[in-house]
Every structure is written in C-alpha cells, then in structure tokens.
Design a protein around this nucleic acid. Sequence first.
DNA 1: ATATATAAGATATTTTTAGTCTTATATCGA
DNA 2: TCGATATAAGACTAAAAATATCTTATATAT
Lengths: 154, 154
Amino acid sequence: MRLTRAGEYGIRCVQHLARHGKGTLVSRKEIAVRTDVPPHFLAKIAQQLARAGIIEIQQGANGGYRLLRDPSGITLLAVIEAIIGEISLNDCVGRPESCHNSPLCTVHLIWNKANQQLRATLQEADFATLAKEESCCLTPFPETAGHKEPIGKK
Amino acid sequence: MRLTRAGEYGIRCVQHLARHGKGTLVSRKEIAVRTDVPPHFLAKIAQQLARAGIIEIQQGANGGYRLLRDPSGITLLAVIEAIIGEISLNDCVGRPESCHNSPLCTVHLIWNKANQQLRATLQEADFATLAKEESCCLTPFPETAGHKEPIGKK
DNA sequence: ATATATAAGATATTTTTAGTCTTATATCGA
DNA sequence: TCGATATAAGACTAAAAATATCTTATATAT
C-alpha cells in the first residue's frame, strides 16, 4: 500500500523540470544527480513520462528531457499513473471481474470510494505549486554551485 | 499501491466471523473454506488479528476463532492495519526522517493529506454494515448445505 | 568521423509477498 | 490418562515485483 520508488522518482524528475519551466532542455545526468536517482533507472522512467505526453526526450549529444506542458497543467496524479498505471487500492477496484459479486459488495463500494478520493486529491496538486516551494529530495534551485553531498537518501 | 492479499484475507475472515456475531466460535477450517483462503495462511493472519485484540483464538479439539468485539465496533481500517501495519502511501509519510526537508515539502503535504483521508474513509466502515449485505468473496450465509463449487477466485 | 548522449531491451539483484511444512502445544472426549 | 483433533509458531520455499545495471544500438552536435 505504498508508492513505488519509480513513482517517487518520476515525481522528482518532473518537479526538477518544472522548476526550469516548460520547454527547457535539461540533461538526464543533471536531473539524475540533482534528484538522486540512478541515471539508467531515470532513463526508463523518462520513457514512460514521454509515452504519457508529459515530457519530450531529445537524443544525441547535448540531449536531455523537456516538459511538454506548462507545470500548472501537470498533476501529481498524471505523473504517478504514467509510471505505475492507474491507481487501484485493492484488486477488486481495478479488476471487478476478479470478484463474482462486485457491484453488490459492500466492501467493494468502500474501496471504490477511497480510490476515487485518493485520485481526486492527487489530481488537485499541480507542479506549478509543487515545484516552487521547498522540497524534500531536490537540491536548491537556482543552482548553488559546487556542493557535493548526497541528496535526500536515508 | 495496492492492498496485499493478506490484508484482503483478513477482511474476509472478520467479515465471516461478523456474520456469526461477537463471541461465536468458528473453526479455522470453516473460515478457510468459506472465504477461499489457504488454511495455513489464515492461521498466520488470525494470529495478527488476535494480537490486535480483534479476535480470540481457541486451541485444541473443536477450537477456532471468535470475535472479541461487536462487529459495529470493528472498522475496516483496524483490520487492515492489524495485518499490514499503519497505512502510509509514500515512504515520506511513514518515515519523515527519510527526507531531509519533510515538514516544508509541498509534495509531502499532499501525501499526508491523502493518507489521512484514506484512513478516515476506511475507519468509517464498520463490520456490522459490511457483513450483512452481499459480498464478493464469501459464500452465502446462513449456510446453504452441500454445495461444493470453488469460492470467489478468478 | 568522432565524441557524447539517450534508446531499448536483456539481465541481475534484492525485497516483498504468498504459501507450505514441520514440530510443538492445547483441548476434548472416550 | 490416552489418543484424536485442532491450532501455535516459526522455519522454509516459491513466486512475483521492485530496483538497478549492463550492453548494444541509434541519434546529434561539432
């Protein structure tokens, strides 16, 4: 009952890009270092974000990632679900056919309600807001040159 | 981001007991068959429910499990958290020290809110209500003698 | 052309989940 | 009191998912 690390990493990635604003190209390496995400893992996450239309990937020398939309138009929910798929708190929410009585089941109704509530809350949060304030796991921005300590893990 | 099967099984177990009411002894075997849970797995889950003060285990011949409280006093949240521990949707919710800036972090605030909402919703649901209506994964009650088909899986 | 950067998928490792097995203990009833 | 039956408790195994890395290929700037 917990977000995967990949989901968390996706949020950090978009958060970092959002601080640069829509359209600015940022290298994978910079993002990886600044958000404390393993570079190759970030690559996989970025591909999912790209498929979801949230970022664009530029290959080649001086390549990197850029936001396709304005940060205010990107929600926490969109980023999370781009990575882990649609949220479903219990199996019966995502696959009603897994239970044989699902539309009548009282427990099922609770899960549906909780699931809907959760998704709504995550949808209300946009990255214009999320990016500008202090954050747990990103180094300060604009860049404070030359500091080297590890970022936000343990 | 999904309830474990152990959690789901715990709900089914309490649900079945709730239909018998507080204090009625029901054998592990009956519960296992009626809720489609592997008997040895149910034993482990029952121990967790017992530690949480939700059920009582009676050993020996003709042993089994019984509810210690009235079904109306048992919430979905209590049962789930007895099995999987306190719900925390993201690592930073359960272990704020895992991030170095957690009280100021905007993302953290969202997670806290979502987490609290989810727990509140699950706390509103009591087993007096949950047990009496139709359910996905339990055979009908009172017992319809002699039917043998598998129960509620796939 | 070459150096640099990401793409894409194969592979490996670790952790968690799920389930089973074994030995011990408790209780009923003959 | 003894044997049958039921659960306790924890060790053990298997399967699945999460996490991370590696390798080969491709794209782009200079």
